[in-house]
Simulated scan of single mutants.
Amino acid sequence: MVLKTAAAIGAGLVVAASVAGCAARYTPTPLATNFPVSKQPKLQAAEHWAVIAGHLEKQLKEALAKQPPRPLYIADAAPATPFQRALTAQLITALVNDGYTVSRTAPGSLKVELDMQAVTFSANRPQYRYHGEHAALASGVWVLSEIDLPPLAVVAAGVGAYDSYNWFNDQFAPGATPRTEIILTISVTDQYRYLARNSSAYYVADSDRPLYGIVDVEPEAPKLTRMFKVRGDM
């Protein structure tokens, strides 16, 4: 196994060197490359919205610590989606429970605005995860091999009746990569300037698009009538 691995590495280096030697030095456009691996949460429950509200409140707390204490006014989006209504209510609850004064009117208060932008990408987006085969070695002992995350060539764990394969992969949301995402921006302003601002992005389950105000337009039915041009005498 060690010899095969060394041979494969050596062959890969030779191929890489050959490809590098043949690469074009000049191109009319930049070469398309992937970003480094990152993770983005997928919203699938109202509890996840509460988690977002708590995260936003924490960000506000850090930003507002640099400002003189003033009441806060949470501006309502109009028209608000079910997600925006719930998030606004959860944010107000988090702020009040943390000791902030949340005003029901705007005058004399710092204005907190939540902006949501929904974006739809193409369907069948790729989902890259760890790959490998899992098998039971003994009761409660599983092995997952061929993981493309060095140095984890083989992962084996005995955790009682717990499935270590599922444990290793349960961080990933099930199903394909959603084509729907939202960009959520929170801003704190007075009448003259922005005092704090932060943006974050989340995946949204495609089946939950209406909760975020995304209305899919039904394709038009094909027309069943035809126009004929009549020639000659009538």
Rank of each mutant, 00 (worst) to 15 (best):
W167F: 13
L114V: 06
A173Q: 14
F228Q: 01
W142H: 07
K66V: 09
W49H: 12
V154A: 00
L184C: 00
T101I: 12
Q117W: 03
P28Y: 09
A63R: 05
W49E: 04
T225V: 12
R226S: 11
R179T: 13
K66Y: 05
L149N: 10
A135V: 08
T105I: 14
A106F: 05
R193Y: 03
N198M: 09
R85M: 11
K58F: 09
V51W: 12
G160A: 09
P68L: 09
A17Q: 01
T81K: 04
A157F: 04
I147L: 15
P126Y: 12
Y73D: 00
R197Y: 04
A201P: 00
K61D: 07
G158C: 00
V141Y: 01
R129Q: 14
A86K: 06
K229S: 06
L224V: 13
V102P: 02
M116K: 06
P150N: 06
F228E: 01
W167P: 04
S103D: 08
P79W: 05
R226K: 09
A135K: 11
F83C: 00
Q127P: 08
Q90A: 14
T27D: 02
H55Y: 07
P41G: 10
I9T: 05
K223D: 14
A138C: 09
D148I: 13
T27H: 06
R179Y: 10
D76V: 07
M227D: 03
T101P: 05
T81L: 06
L3C: 08
G175H: 10
N198A: 10
V51A: 13
A156W: 05
R70V: 12
A94M: 08
L64H: 05
A161T: 14
L195N: 03
G140D: 10
A77N: 06
V154I: 14
L149F: 12
F121T: 13
E218D: 15
A196D: 00
D216S: 12
D190W: 12
M116E: 02
P28G: 11
L110W: 04
T101F: 11
L195Q: 00
D208E: 15
S164R: 07
R179I: 10
S164M: 10
A8E: 03
Y26S: 13
L184V: 11
V102H: 02
A20C: 04
A16K: 05
C22H: 11
P79T: 09
I147H: 03
R85H: 06
E47D: 09
A65F: 08
Y194T: 08
V19W: 06
Y162T: 15
A201G: 06
S207W: 10
F121K: 14
H134Y: 10
L110T: 01
Q117V: 15
P41M: 14
T105F: 02
Y73I: 03
I182K: 00
A32F: 07
L43N: 08
N198E: 07
G99W: 11
A106K: 07
L144H: 05
T189H: 02
N166P: 04
T29S: 02
Q59E: 06
A16I: 12
A16N: 05
Q44T: 15
M227V: 15
S199R: 04
D115H: 04
P107C: 08
N97S: 13
R129T: 15
V19H: 02
V141N: 01
L195T: 02
